[in-house]
Amino acid sequence: MLRFIFRRILLILPVLFGLTVIMFVIARVLPGDPVGLAAGPNATREEIEALAREFGLDQPILGQYWTYVSGLAQGDFGTSIFTRRPVADDLAAYLPATLELVFSALLIAIVVGIPAGLMAAIWRNRWPDYLSNILSVAAISMPRFFLGLLLQLCFAMWLMWLPLGGRFPIILEPPPGVTGFYTIDALLAGDMESFQTACRYLAMPAIAMSLSPLATILRMMRAATIEVMQQDYVTTARALGLSPRLIVFKYVLRNAISSSLTLIGLYFGWLLGGTVLVETVFDWPGVGLYATSAIVAQDFMPVVSVALVIGALFISVNIVIDLLYGVINPKVRYQ
């Protein structure tokens, strides 16, 4: 088991190396004039050259790459040419917000999607199944940013139940940072009022993010359940006179979930990359919003780093999922 974990972790390194190369090629080889843009429209030629020298952009591309990668090895993600802040500091500030959003969305998707998929399979080809089928296609087709706008229009502007955007009121002090997740930090500090506030801010973006993974998990769970229910051991269990409830919860659920699990891992990466839109709509201070503003400014160091961090998180989560797979399904345990 330990050897397996170790080997999987070693495999991350070449992938990370590949990611830096791809992002660097995009950032440096494609046309675009980040220095001119950062220096401003009235900058003189000398000012632009000085800025390029300061950020090492006058060096040959291989030299720039080497500087970046050797910095990375020491936890230095480079400096933003626009804000002149170290990218690592920005990431540390924005990443927890994105992760909190993604985990909440996944939680909603799993908590609703798995039982709903199970029910659709049990009532296969009857109205709950048809309803969940059409609703899930609709959910997948719904643009997240449009759903976000509709939620804002309805719950923040007309009904005024929830705040329009942001993560926490500016005038209030956020809960003391332990995990960086405001909801969990508030709970840890025993501050129920902050917890409620954090939840109110989190609700709409998390729901807007969760809809499409929810629908996919539902459909996957339905298909997996139907397949499992046709297995011989289910027939045997039924023949032995076990109650339907016991069969579903003890035997079917466990086997059906394990095939949905891989999907959840894949969706985690997709959600991390897809927070961009929801963060833009809800002004949620995460890496997506950070990357967007950097992209618009052609400030590529933050973009490269965000892509790298998301890629690394994606691989790590999939390794964890692989391990969980072994816990849930003893047939695929690793030596």
Partner: peptide, 12 residues
């Protein structure tokens, strides 16, 4: 596939 496709597309 590991790269976030939306961010990749935005950057390009």
């Amino acid at each position: 596939l590991t790269l976030p496709s939306l961010i990749l597309a935005m950057a390009v």
